[in-house]
Design a protein around this nucleic acid. Sequence first.
DNA 1: TAAATCGGAATGAACGTTCATTCTGATACT
DNA 2: AGTATCAGAATGAACGTTCATTCCGATTTA
Lengths: 192, 192
Amino acid sequence: MKKMDKRELIITATCDLIAENGLQATPISMVAKEACCGAGTIYRYFETKEALIEDVYLTLMERFSDACLKDVDENASVREQLNTVWLNLYHYMREVPRDALLLDQLSVAPAIRGELQEQGKRRLKEKIDPLFARGREEGIIKDIPDDVLGVFVYGGISTLLRTDRNAPCAVPTEVTDDMLLSICWGAIEKRD
Amino acid sequence: MKKMDKRELIITATCDLIAENGLQATPISMVAKEACCGAGTIYRYFETKEALIEDVYLTLMERFSDACLKDVDENASVREQLNTVWLNLYHYMREVPRDALLLDQLSVAPAIRGELQEQGKRRLKEKIDPLFARGREEGIIKDIPDDVLGVFVYGGISTLLRTDRNAPCAVPTEVTDDMLLSICWGAIEKRD
DNA sequence: TAAATCGGAATGAACGTTCATTCTGATACT
DNA sequence: AGTATCAGAATGAACGTTCATTCCGATTTA
């Protein structure tokens, strides 16, 4: 019980520092200081720095999945459910830029290899893939593989937010929920 | 003149190594070996490693802009011109994964700060922004800021390719040009 | 030959990791 | 209860490695 506290303290400290300074600019010594412990202590909980980073990534993806799937009503229409997921994604990354930055940093880290990335995305995919399948059955989604459509929309939203973060002085355009959904659905919706 | 040869040799070597091994895994000594010169020589051409990285980034963005704007016919319709740009983008990143990987690495590098990023994208923006403006005048593009639409589509395409690169064992789905354009236009096209 | 250029060993700083030691608080003994 | 003993958690100085950068003797150029 007490021990888990310290473990999580280290993970939280690492999240904060990587989001703020970047991965290669957060030495273990800095994590130790932020977590109020000695450098050696970190190695009681994590075999190597790489293992720590992996744990940080999985923790992040857990939060991320929770946020995206919040309030998704399994009984609602495909359209409503996807709307919820996309708006969740958009608002989460906008309101918790720390996690969005962290994700950017970790997604090019050598420690995060293919298999781990799969594991991180699994929960999200398991929920969303069936939604696309249903949408296709109902004839409201383009005849293009789900992965292509889903990844395209995810990439669009996350890149939009990243660009906004990088240019804080640019037009502070308010992207409304309606605008966002119009773009997302336009991309995947089948039209006759 | 001769010096430029060596300078470019160093930049090319850096491109290759970063694309292959990642930024923090390519020490100057390795660049020197790849470029067949001593470590000291690199410092005759670049003040610091950071300056070298900046040059690599600008060189990359030049190639990238060239590729995207190739064969864009100023007299063609907005639709045709955007089609050309998007397909250029897609095919370039697919056929030259080295540059796509490099862009991923550099876009989170601390050396690539906001202003430099602006500079890298400038040429592309100067060509594409007027296209969107014309499209809006013609009433074929959504009433949503150009930046939002443009960045969304760019993000979608590049994320699609990145995902494909990361999971080489996944479905080797052939995304046809028609599919891609259907998605891109769906995202930005105004419908009545 | 004089000047410019080059190469790669040398340098020093920074980093991940280790380990001998200290601290803590629970248990056993008197 | 008070003291002694102990296990394992925590510590941070020290170590070896890696890296960017410098320096100087060798080499090319003019």
